[in-house]
Amino acid sequence: MATEKTNKINLDQVRHIALLARLELTADEEQRMLGDLEQMLEYVDKLNELDTAAVEPTAQVGDIGAAMRDDVVATCDDPQSILANAPDAREQMFKVPKIIE
């Protein structure tokens, strides 16, 4: 198992990334994640064998046109159904803990 001494990523970064991703990790999970990420980052390092300075990135493939839709209102047939799967709702709205701005 990787330790905190590894060079691609450290435990603080794992915690920071977990916060960005809104994942609560236990101390054990943090350690395991550190090891797994370290292994993957070591592996993907092989990409640096390639000189890509003059290469354009590819974000999409296939036969992608420029499809657009017309500005036409399509009324939702059953707005109630949007809350059908809601874990908590009130007054036709989704309920969450009080947000502090």
Binding site: M68, R69, D70, D71, V73, C76, I82, Q92, M93, F94
Partner: peptide, 29 residues
């Protein structure tokens, strides 16, 4: 295709796309 009209009752101008349901896709106006 949901309406942009202002002042409608809550969550009436909504559909799976603008509520981010799984698997839906955006199509540009």
């Amino acid at each position: 295709g949901c309406s942009t009209e202002f002042g409608a009752p809550p969550n009436t101008h909504v559909c799976p796309v603008c509520c981010g349901m799984p698997g839906v896709l955006p199509v540009f106006n």
